[in-house]
Amino acid sequence: MTENFRQAPPPWTYPGPAYPPPPLPVQQKPPRRFRRGTVAVVAAAALVAGGVGGTVGALIGSDGASQPTLGAAATTTSSTTGTSSGAEGTDVSAIVAKVMPSVVQVNVRLRDGEGIGSGVIVSSDGKILTNNHVVADAETVTVTLSDGRTVDATVLGTDPSTDLALIQAQGVSGLTAAKFANSDDVKVGDEVIAIGSPGGLQGTVTTGIVSALDRTVTVSESEEQQNPYPYTQQGQGAGTTSYKALQTDAAINQGNSGGPLFNAAGQVVGINSAMYSPVTGPNGSAGSVGIGFAIPSNQAQQVIDKL
Rank of each mutant, 00 (worst) to 15 (best):
Y229K: 13
Q105T: 14
Y229Q: 14
W12T: 14
A74M: 14
H133W: 05
G50V: 06
S242N: 12
P23I: 02
P15H: 15
Q267D: 06
P11G: 15
I121W: 02
A274C: 10
V108Y: 02
T130C: 01
L145E: 07
G126H: 00
I95L: 00
D147W: 03
G113L: 09
T13K: 13
E139H: 07
S273Y: 08
Q254C: 05
G119N: 01
G174C: 12
T130S: 01
A49R: 15
V217I: 09
I116P: 01
T241E: 14
A238Q: 15
G89Q: 06
D185S: 10
T81V: 03
R6N: 13
T176S: 12
S277I: 00
F293G: 10
P160K: 11
E191H: 00
V186T: 03
T204P: 06
L47H: 12
G148W: 06
V42C: 11
A94R: 06
V122S: 02
T13N: 13
V141T: 13
N272Y: 05
L201P: 05
P21M: 10
G16P: 03
V268D: 00
V172N: 06
V141D: 07
T158R: 02
F5L: 08
A72Q: 14
Q28D: 09
E139S: 04
G255S: 01
D147H: 07
T154M: 07
A44V: 11
Q202S: 14
E221I: 12
D147N: 09
P278K: 11
S173D: 07
P101V: 03
S84D: 06
I60K: 15
P228V: 04
I167F: 03
D184N: 08
S257I: 03
G237N: 15
Y19G: 13
S161H: 13
N283P: 08
L164K: 07
G255K: 00
P10H: 05
L145W: 10
V106I: 07
T2D: 13
L47S: 11
K98W: 02
A138P: 01
P160G: 05
T13E: 15
T206N: 02
G71M: 14
V39P: 09
V48W: 13
P198N: 08
D163W: 10
A251M: 00
G189Q: 04
R36G: 09
G89T: 02
V188W: 09
L59H: 13
G16T: 09
I295E: 11
